[in-house]
Design a protein around this nucleic acid. Structure first.
Lengths: 155, 155
DNA sequence: GATCATAATGAGACTGAGTCTCATTCGCAA
DNA sequence: TTGCGAATGAGACTCAGTCTCATTATGATC
């Protein structure tokens, strides 16, 4: 699992653990050894990862526990789940642990890659979406702007 | 399945069937009775639908065939698959059979609702994304701009 | 309209990502 | 150090979606 890191986390390794710990505490979860190792595995990938990616990087982690802990991390706002076009979910650090960004999703192999846009475009999108959501009685939390197509390998 | 229709198809009922037929033919698929009924079921929903929605509306349709035909319709550009936060995929007519639009995805129940944005915002997003994709050697086909949050029922 | 080759269908078995269960272990508080 | 609730590991389980294969519909040709 040696992938290019597209979006650098704005925090150092120890600050990241610190931030994760605070978020877990706020939700009455413990920052255990295996959760720490899970966070390290996601960090070392530097890109959205699937369960197989995580277990390949840290074979001592047990799948059922990893799923459970990804769920805990998601509830605590540490991790975001990305539903790609494949049949597996991808996970990555949630904003603002990772800078705001979007995804290139390959229709061929389902791989997910991070990408950033202009501040200007972001602001307009945000405003426009919030307006539209209001009309439907929808309470928005975050937006995901994904580009679907073929990655360099599948093209 | 009486849902509000958010985005009207720009085509009449018969024009829609005509357009679907043409797209299937272009891909050497036949527009059979059961595919016609499937298209009607999606049309009558007026919103993104899951397999249970479709089968509830047209019980004579067999799940395995529906999946197979949704796949055929997707390959032919008749239908788009939406990966919501739930565990089931949603389907709706692809653009330009349906006007260009985006989705409100409920984190609580996974339901998907259609929504439209300003032309202006769309144009900027399109330009910005295409640029970003180019930098990654990615071949873009379409973008999906989804808003994640809670629907009126789950809020 | 009859015949034929091929595509599509229906029924059910199968796959596999993700969840649940439960006995055991860990982590924290007093 | 003890005790108790939270977390873990191992594996059974669920169920959306896919695959298989025998049967049936479809459209092309005569």
């Amino acid at each position: 699992m040696t992938r290019v890191r597209n979006i650098d986390p704005p925090l150092s390794h120890s600050d990241l653990h610190e931030a994760v710990s605070r978020r877990l505490e706020r939700h009455d979860y413990r920052y255990t050894q295996s959760r720490r190792r899970l966070v390290d595995a996601i960090l070392s990938a530097g890109q959205p990862v699937t369960l197989p990616d995580i277990v390949a990087d840290a074979p001592e982690l047990v799948p059922s526990s990893v799923y459970r802990n990804l769920d805990v991390l998601e509830r605590s706002g540490v991790v975001d789940r990305i539903n790609s076009s494949g049949d597996r979910a991808y996970f990555e650090f949630a904003e603002p642990l990772l800078a705001h960004h979007h995804h290139l999703i390959c229709i061929g192999c389902g791989v997910v890659e991070d990408v950033r846009l202009d501040e200007d475009v972001e602001a307009r999108v945000e405003r426009s979406l919030t307006e539209a959501a209001g009309r439907s009685g929808f309470t928005p939390l975050r937006h995901s702007l994904d580009l679907h197509g073929y990655c360099a390998l599948c093209a």
